[in-house]
Nucleic acid binder design. Structure first.
Length: 589
DNA sequence: GCCGTTTTCGGCCCGACTGTTTTCAGTCG
């Protein structure tokens, strides 16, 4: 039995789709869609295919039917798939690396590889670049001087990091978008301007920044957009859309329509693609054809909408919050009027993951601000309570007795603060390491000094699923351990999540009244949204924490909120929306 | 190749833009 990661399987399925496209796009139109859909589904699955296979649960994945399932089984059994080899045999492997370069699709990549006999996937990008520089591409049928230059530039930018798959963190995309909105609104032709796309849906990572504007003079708005002083260049410019690249290879897309079309424009450009496709298929059955311009009725007339709500309502649906628009059951829920009332930032009454600079001699990093400073910020945020949760004192450098004394001293400090700070109640926590063997880094009598503890993994991330899960459950089983922090350990764009048997963890958390943290740190956002949604089916509790190491970090809470919303969470699912009294009841349960 | 609130067969979103064309092919979201 061989093993493959989800990423490898998805890549393989995309290669098959590309090969079908090259061979005969019209003939294989629906197979191509099916393979791409299956690849998307596998790539975004929080559970590894190998684990689904072991549970015989591959059918749970949408887009994976009998045929592709059998291909995957064959892949794991023999290391290869006969059918895939058949489809791929006439396509050089040198085609595929080109497909991660923006503006390169299967057909263009194949033509270049085929005409110039490029067969080395390692060097193919450089090979194409060289051929373009030598001026050999312009004379090919279907190409010209311009497209030859475009190819050169696309590869230049690719080498600087602009690939189809590169994504930025939410915080950076927000900043780019806000700056752009401020700039756009300076033009009197801009009636209203909005952030759309994955940024409006508050996805954890963002590809391009999408912006929509309503205006009676789109040309003037596009001119203004194209004159943005911090742009590197204009990628494209039409009658209603334009794209520019900013320094750092960040792309901004703009669409401008008249105010009477604003409703459909917002709907269209917010996406996701999957949501829009599903919505359009649903509408089609009612005889409607949807686009950014409005809804085309059976008689061919276009009905326009000034608001997004009217657009959804016309289709018999409740307005769907952007965070839910991922084709994960939201259309059905909107039809049945069973959409959740999502948690909002104003519901938050406290934050439990706060690292002050209190000298606790920890195993990991200390915070930068004093407990007093953190409390002031908490008061400004209108919090009812705040939990201090520095890392436990390092067990390598202290005896158990020394640690006990450090904590006694810290408790005295916290008691003093409780006397002097009546407006914000203080919860006494620590963030305690779960060691490799599953025991906690604090002794039982040390744990007794706390109101509750956050436990988390900070070492040995790469152990097998079973071992990791057992380790976490053991650590979490301590009666004082109430919260599991950053449950998957992922760092966006730098560290893959460790592998956990999520179903087992969720069942355990439900059974033992433990909360899973949604960590608001922009490169963590962990538990990730799709797992939050799955966990919610187990009816378990979450806590949205900032993991702050400075007062300014406490402002990251909205990012955690966005993850909770994308996971369909309501206020009742989140323990730091509880009043202080209710919270204490929960801690003592 | 997938899928089901008219279907287990017969459907499968829709339009913008560019470059190379002279009505279209390819890419993108």
């Amino acid at each position: 039995m061989k093993s493959f990661t989800n990423e490898e399987i998805a890549r393989l399925l995309r290669q098959v789709a590309a090969a079908y496209t090259i061979q005969n796009e019209a003939k294989y139109r629906f197979q191509i869609l099916a393979y791409q859909k299956a690849a998307d589904s596998i790539e975004t699955s929080a559970t590894e295919i190998k684990d689904l296979l072991a549970d015989n649960a591959l059918d749970d994945l949408p887009g994976v039917g009998a045929s592709i399932k059998n291909h995957i089984l064959e892949l794991f059994n023999t290391g290869a798939v006969t059918h895939f080899e058949d489809v791929l045999k006439n396509v050089s492997p040198a085609v595929f690396p080109l497909l991660d370069i923006p503006s390169f699709g299967p057909k263009k990549a194949f033509k270049l590889v085929d005409k110039f006999n490029l067969n080395d996937p390692i060097t193919v990008v450089d090979d194409v670049y060289k051929i373009a520089c030598e001026g050999k591409i312009a004379s090919l049928e279907g190409f010209g001087e311009k497209s030859q230059n475009d190819i050169k530039r696309a590869i230049d930018e690719y080498k600087l990091g602009k690939t189809k798959s590169s994504r930025m963190v939410l915080a950076m995309a927000s900043e780019i978008s806000n700056t752009m909105l401020t700039y756009l609104r300076k033009d009197k032709n801009v009636l209203q301007a909005f952030t759309l796309g994955s940024l409006r849906r508050m996805k954890s990572t963002i590809g391009d920044v999408d912006i929509a504007v309503s205006s009676n003079n789109p040309t003037a708005v596009l001119d203004h957009f194209n004159s943005y002083p911090y742009k590197d260049r204009v990628i494209e410019r039409g009658d209603i859309t334009s794209s520019i690249i900013l320094s750092g290879n960040k792309q901004v897309d703009l669409m401008v329509l008249t105010p009477e079309m604003l409703g459909s424009l917002l709907q269209h450009f917010t996406g996701s693609k999957e949501h829009n496709v599903a919505l359009r298929e649903y509408a089609l059955k009612k005889g409607y054809s949807l686009s950014e311009k409005g809804i085309k009725l059976k008689d061919g007339t276009l009905k326009t909408f000034t608001s997004e709500k009217e657009f959804y309502n016309f289709l018999g649906l409740a307005w769907i919050p952007p965070e839910l628009r991922e084709n994960q059951g939201e259309i059905e829920a909107a039809l049945k009027k069973t959409l959740p009332t999502l948690v909002e930032i104003d519901d938050i009454k406290g934050d439990f993951h706060i690292h002050s600079n209190y000298a606790i001699e920890p195993s990991h990093d200390l915070g930068k601000n004093t407990m007093e400073e953190m409390l002031i910020r908490a008061k400004e945020l209108n919090y009812e309570y705040l939990g201090f949760s520095e890392h436990n004192p390092s067990i390598g450098n202290h005896t158990e007795q020394e640690i006990y004394e450090i904590l006694l001293k810290r408790n005295k400090k916290i008691d003093q603060l409780r006397m002097s700070n009546k407006s914000v109640r203080i919860i006494n926590l620590l963030e305690v390491d779960i060691l490799v063997n599953g025991s906690l880094a604090l002794s039982d009598r040390c744990m007794e000094l706390l109101d509750m503890a956050i436990v988390s993994i900070h070492s040995s991330f790469r152990n097998p699923t079973e071992e990791m899960t057992t380790r976490i459950l053991k650590g979490l089983s301590h009666p004082k351990a109430k919260i599991l922090a950053h449950p998957s350990g992922r760092l966006i764009n730098s560290r893959a999540p460790y592998e956990v048997d999520w179903k087992r963890l969720f069942a355990f958390a439900k059974e033992n009244n433990k909360a899973l943290e949604i960590n608001s740190w922009p490169t963590r956002l962990d538990l990730q949204d799709i797992l939050v949604k799955q966990a919610r089916d187990y009816d378990i509790k979450f806590v949205i924490n900032t993991d702050s190491h400075a007062t300014s970090h406490m402002d990251n809470m909205p990012y955690g909120i966005s993850v909770a919303k994308r996971g369909w969470c309501e206020r009742k699912d989140i323990i730091n929306t509880y009043s202080y009294d209710k919270l204490i009841d929960w801690i003592n349960q």
